[in-house]
């Protein structure tokens, strides 16, 4: 009965990621999209907590939003999987519900 959580905000601007991580049950899926993709990067002030989250949940990042922002896949934290929109649809279908942390 796992939930797919989506986070579309930069962790440096809003608390959507923090709230998501506070309320996501272990083993949830978490997808970063739009400005949320900045949360998936190595070497930022948010990297440590996101790396920890990647150990407790399945974390994904939307490739088209990453590419649009000039970010390369080698900048992504280990344990985070890049998906395209087809992959996003699959994730939404595979989980029991989708919870958007706007």
């Amino acid at each position: 009965m796992a939930t797919l959580h989506t986070v579309n905000k930069s962790p440096f601007e809003r608390n959507a990621l923090d709230t998501c991580l506070r309320l996501a049950k272990q083993g949830s899926g978490i997808l970063f999209l739009e400005d949320g993709v900045y949360g998936a990067l190595k070497g930022t002030a948010a990297s440590e907590k996101v790396a920890k989250a990647a150990g407790e949940h399945k974390v994904y990042v939307l490739g088209p939003d990453l590419a649009a922002r000039g970010m390369q896949e080698d900048q992504i934290l280990d344990g985070i999987q890049v998906v395209d929109y087809a992959g996003f649809v699959d994730l939404a279908a595979e989980h029991d519900r989708v919870n958007a942390w706007l």
Partner: peptide, 18 residues
């Protein structure tokens, strides 16, 4: 608590956020 709310969220069919 956060844990109780996390459990409640997991029991839903639909979660609305605006």
């Amino acid at each position: 608590s956060r844990e109780e709310l996390a459990d409640l969220l997991e029991e839903q069919d639909v979660v609305f956020s605006f």
